[in-house]
Design a protein around this nucleic acid. Sequence first.
DNA 1: CGAAAAATGGATTGTCAAATCCACTTTTTG
DNA 2: CAAAAAGTGGATTTGACAATCCATTTTTCG
Lengths: 211, 211
Amino acid sequence: MASGDQYASEPGRAGLTARLTPKGERTRGRIVAEAARLMHDGGVAETTIEDVKAAAGVSSSQLYHYFADKEELVQAVIGYQADLIVGNTERAGLGTPEGLRAWRDVVVTQAALASGQGGCPLGSLGGQLAETDAAARGQVADGFGRWSDALRDGLRELHAAGRLRPGLDPDDLAVTLLASLQGGLLLAQVRRDTGPLTTALDTFLALILND
Amino acid sequence: MASGDQYASEPGRAGLTARLTPKGERTRGRIVAEAARLMHDGGVAETTIEDVKAAAGVSSSQLYHYFADKEELVQAVIGYQADLIVGNTERAGLGTPEGLRAWRDVVVTQAALASGQGGCPLGSLGGQLAETDAAARGQVADGFGRWSDALRDGLRELHAAGRLRPGLDPDDLAVTLLASLQGGLLLAQVRRDTGPLTTALDTFLALILND
DNA sequence: CGAAAAATGGATTGTCAAATCCACTTTTTG
DNA sequence: CAAAAAGTGGATTTGACAATCCATTTTTCG
């Protein structure tokens, strides 16, 4: 799934997606953004269609005009969060130790603003939906794949520049970094305290950087 | 919450819990164990009280005789999983490199048997309930705390025996190891593939062990 | 401009699962 | 052994929420 196509048509529906007017596009976007916010803050199951309608200021017919059902809305939310996160990671400049540390700061700060509440905007969706909605699980997996690739690119640069400790494989480190981040965010989420996230990231970065 | 008291009374209810006959104890235990299995395999929200009744072979009145509502059942499940996991970790003998590696093997094998499905029996509950049920979130946090302590004890032993690379803090490593494990399990869960889990654990262990 | 497509409003329906209730049986214990 | 407590059975109620329906307005484009 390329990151270029705004709202890519669902797999298996290519071409069937009705064209949207600018107004429709805005309405649809508002629904997705509000749904994303609500689902992040309060969980997917807890967020009702009625909540989304109220937050986005739309009626039933509008919402069901853009999404066949709640599952389809959830999938749009996953794509939305994945695009945001992957984009931010790609633009972070992880190819230098300074860029990597700055990225770490952004992640920790963002989590701290909410005291960990909501967890990772992508990972928490995965945890909630993995056993409930196979399509959603696949989309989260895809998002993690793109995210991991973005991290890998940065770590490869660091490796090529000799800023990683000798003997380390940047590809493996990327997966491990993503895992530490996800676990750290989960621990922070249930503790309502970003301490474990900070510890996990800082400990890991200290283990791999050679300065 | 000591791991000794089988089914500890809920916080704030100490002493109020009615005494159970052996038969009642068995029925209650069966309900919790079946609920734990169902919720791990299919998610908490997806698991209905009716599912639990059917799996445990009990009626409504029995289930509501032991648990005030679904929330209370969920909390019993959290305690059950936490006790299991922490117990296993304490008994794993993480104080030697061989013990640590054997523990790693058990974790990976268990995940592989289900192709990652269900994720961590404790962590996945945290991810699903953190924004839905404050008491559940606290109990998962408590479970993570005990788990982290068990890991820390092992890593301190390794540290004292000089089996960790110099300059490392075993307490920080324990938190980071737990985070890597949780993240690895989440990645494995959404990908239905234990590759990321293996990578995360092996990469991390290679970074900290000095042999 | 004017027909067709897109977008919107809001009342209504249908389903499903949590929780209640009352009657009955078994086990404990003084 | 008998009274009290614990445990069991299953029908019923209640409420919430996803999804449908039909009517109306707005926008697009030939």
